[in-house]
């Protein structure tokens, strides 16, 4: 456990020590706050724009931060840093779990940083903030779990660039997998069963995306997503992340270093 925490800490601090990163996050918060100036251009919808832009950027920051993991493991393997580590009494499982935890904490810290800035922007722009604001953020944390385990998996058998591209594709296409479920609903019999099974196995990030529903409940009087949904969807993300990460461990154990 100490080994895992040591690797996690080292990974976290290596990423988090970059000062340019925090400047970038501050610029993002300024960008979100600048959306309040778009009232005329958006025909009186600047508050909607602030909320939608803010949540979209938080999701992008989360995904971007997690993609570091896809690059981290293959880079260390290529530079033989991992080999040095693994020659010490550190198991492959411990190494990968440490990398996963360090990167996840780094991404989580970034999301918290931007979210606090975003909330300050909302308060200044007098947009009502309710506890429901946490619903989309819980979904983003769930998305980070799945993406981190996908990045860990790809990092174990792909080189840096392909691993990052594959993680990005999971982020991009994972939000649209419901197309398969909708297609299956139009079919009947075995076709429907097979497509639904395929849909279920894919990383369904759309199940965790409640950003649109939150914004609509805030501005269009649409019903809000219940807290129970957020809880169950994040439990799904956790389950998916565990299974995918165990797959990553299995692949990493068999990899010839």
């Amino acid at each position: 456990m100490d080994n895992v925490m040591a690797i996690a800490r080292a990974t976290y601090w290596r990423h988090a020590s970059s000062k340019a990163l925090y400047l970038l996050w501050i610029l993002l918060i300024v960008l979100i706050s600048s959306a309040t100036r778009y009232d005329v251009l958006s025909n009186g919808r600047s508050k909607v724009l602030v909320v939608d832009l803010g949540l979209a950027l938080i999701a992008l920051v989360a995904a971007g931060s997690i993609m570091v993991l896809g690059m981290e493991v293959p880079r260390e393997l290529r530079q033989r840093i991992a080999e040095n580590l693994l020659s010490k009494p550190v198991g492959r499982d411990q190494y990968l779990i440490g990398k996963f935890l360090g990167t996840f904490l780094f991404a989580f810290g970034n999301v918290v940083f931007i979210s606090v800035g975003f909330m300050i922007v909302l308060m200044v722009s007098k947009t009502p903030i309710t506890e429901d604001f946490l619903l989309p953020l819980i979904g983003i944390v769930g998305m980070m779990l799945i993406l981190a385990s996908a990045a860990a998996l790809f990092g174990t058998f792909l080189s840096e660039v392909p691993a990052v591209i594959a993680t990005f594709l999971v982020f991009w296409l994972g939000h649209s997998t419901q197309a398969i479920a909708h297609m299956s609903d139009k079919m009947g019999g075995a076709g429907q069963f097979v497509l639904r099974a395929i849909y279920g196995v894919l990383p369904n990030l759309n199940l965790l995306n409640t950003r649109g529903e939150f914004s609509q409940s805030l501005f269009a009087n649409a019903p809000s997503v219940p807290w129970s949904y957020a809880g169950i969807s994040v439990a799904y993300a956790l389950l998916y992340a565990v299974v995918l990460f165990v797959t990553a461990l299995l692949v990493f154990r068999r990899r010839d270093l």
Binding site: Y199, N204, Y229, S233, Y236, Y240
Partner: peptide, 8 residues
């Protein structure tokens, strides 16, 4: 996971 995802 497949079963849970379909329920959700």
């Amino acid at each position: 996971i497949s079963w849970v995802a379909n329920q959700i």
